[in-house]
Design a binder for these strands. Structure first.
Lengths: 328, 328
DNA sequence: TTGTGTTGCGGAACCGGTTCCGCAACATTT
DNA sequence: AAATGTTGCGGAACCGGTTCCGCAACACAA
């Protein structure tokens, strides 16, 4: 099981190692030599040492992926998509987790650079000056997923449009007393853009909106659901994420209210199992996995120097289900 | 932003690069020289090139993690735990996905070896001769999570005991007509051990058991739930996983049955949100995240040559909730 | 004073590749 | 036939570290 090296190959084939290297990297090598080298490589199962390669060439076949958490539905689906495509193209995915700390995003940007990844896909929440600085410093292509910024190539979910479309649907169905349960604004896409899409739809229809703010965690939304259940001052609770919807539903159930009988609830994001719950939950499906694949494609394009648009939108799909009642 | 190298440090400090290397790796260096080198390193922000290091030392600070899927709840929670601990200890996690193909597990074992990871954590489903061969070939510590095998260090969930305990509880509650919905046997831990634990409890109480087999996917369990709903020939449906329980619940709801009014249902595995569903689902909670951390600890121990038990069990916790009725 | 250890440090080889340079052999043009 | 390109290939330097070896300086025991 000892490493076979390029020297061994050279010796066995009776050529110089530079020739072997050229053979491997597609330089000019005569047919006869080519055959000899090929045979020897076959026989010995030779595989170049990646460290030696990277040492000189200062490049790897790795794409770094920075994720805020490893156990979110969105992140893991996206990673699946990325990994699939990257593997196809002979690249590897190196996942690093930031545990939702902005500071660590920046740290990891530099860290991945140190590891000479060829490119970086970043599932971001906020883009600060220091992020931009880091991206500029490291001189490596970066693709941002889920947030947008004028200076970084980004692949974003159509949060505004999707929220607007869903909100409009609710208006068409006659809902006018709305409670919106959102998240903090530091997550631009979810905390601001998504909310603004909804509000636009609501405002256009002249609906009455009350707003709550919570975290991304199910548990934090339960008391809000309970409170809403006791007051019952709206016909529909619009939640910024499926997790929040889950929590609100629980809170409502705890308060003895039924959905959609007493009140309607909608989510956003498209957990698979929202469909199999009872009642099934109205939500917006975002194509995480496919977005991952596209991201992989795009970062590889950036590597080869192709120009791609600074900002690309993904699609969305409304999932209109049982949890929201049609009033008219 | 040019790389600072050990040569630069040596030159600036007026010493030989071997001395700098010794300084970095804790060799014998005099106090005066030590100070000089330290100052220069501070000033230049020097960071050793990892490829150059690995080239000679044939080692990295990476632990490979082989997972069957990136988007399973269990896998992502486990990865979180692994990553946390590894990061603390100055190691990095390199995740590779096998998309549930046994063949790729073996491939990845060799592949990770090629990349000179220091150790491998393997979330396995089946252990074959070829796996063992690979593990032996690569000469790298491997820790198996979730399955067991006499020849591989493993960290396993107490599937049998947990299933037995839960089954026993159901018996105590007076359930005697049981339907067990399991998965294929190729996944030893879930398909066999877990099932056997349940069956043992059921048999001891002389209960009547009918068995179905399905996949790990929610959708495949829905028709089974529907069928059960129409026949209604049991008081309790025991599912091998939470996903299956979700599907069965949907099928039952489609058939117009209520849980636990018409029939009880239990899951296994402990999705977080099983608690917030309505009804909340009785299940077994497995400590995925903590298992990940422990796995990280264990693999690091193996690296330092410590001996650890070949087989370690994790804990479990019964979550007795609304979806299973107490008959007596 | 001489002999015997230590300790600190420099020099050089080495890890396994890539790349630059130059030469020889052969083909093509003038 | 001489001049000029090509093409194929070997030699050597280089990437940035680690490690072996040996020498000099110093301390201490004999």
């Amino acid at each position: 099981m000892k490493q076979v090296t390029i020297n061994d190959i050279a010796k066995l084939a009776g050529v110089a190692k530079s020739t072997v290297s050229r053979y491997l990297n597609g330089g000019s090598v005569g047919q006869a030599t080519r055959d000899k080298i090929e045979r020897v490589i076959q026989e010995t199962n030779y595989e170049p040492n990646q460290f030696a390669q990277s040492l000189k060439s200062k490049q790897t076949k790795m794409i770094g992926v920075i994720v805020p958490r490893l156990d979110s539905y969105a992140a893991s689906r996206t990673m699946m998509g990325i990994d699939e495509r990257l593997t196809e193209r002979g690249y590897q995915m190196l996942v690093v987790n930031t545990a939702q700390q902005t500071e660590r995003e920046i740290e990891q940007l530099y860290n991945l650079a140190k590891q000479k990844v060829a490119g970086i896909i970043w599932l971001g929440t906020t883009v600060t000056e220091r992020h931009l600085q880091a991206i500029q410093d490291i001189q490596i292509p970066v693709l941002l997923i889920g947030q947008e910024h004028g200076h970084v190539h980004s692949l974003v979910y159509p949060d505004f449009d999707a929220a607007y479309a869903l909100g409009k649907q609710f208006m068409d169905w006659g809902h006018r007393d709305i409670i919106y349960v959102g998240v903090e604004e530091y997550d631009i896409a979810v905390g601001q853009t998504r909310r603004d899409g909804f509000l636009r739809a609501f405002n256009e229809a002249g609906a009455d909106v009350k707003t709550y703010t919570t975290s991304f965690k199910i548990d934090d939304a339960i008391p809000i659901g309970a409170q809403i259940g006791h007051e019952l001052s709206a016909s529909l609770v619009v939640c910024a994420t499926d997790n929040i919807a889950l929590g609100v539903l629980k809170g409502l159930a705890n308060a003895g209210k039924t959905v959609p009988g007493d009140i309607s609830v909608s989510g956003f994001g498209g957990y698979d199992f929202t469909e199999v719950l009872h009642p099934s939950i109205t939500t917006v499906h975002l194509p995480y996995r496919r977005t991952g694949s596209r991201a992989a494609d795009m970062i590889l394009q950036l590597l080869t120097g192709e120009t791609i648009p600074m900002k690309t939108f993904t699609t969305f799909e409304l999932k209109l289900r049982e949890s929201v009642d049609i009033l008219n």
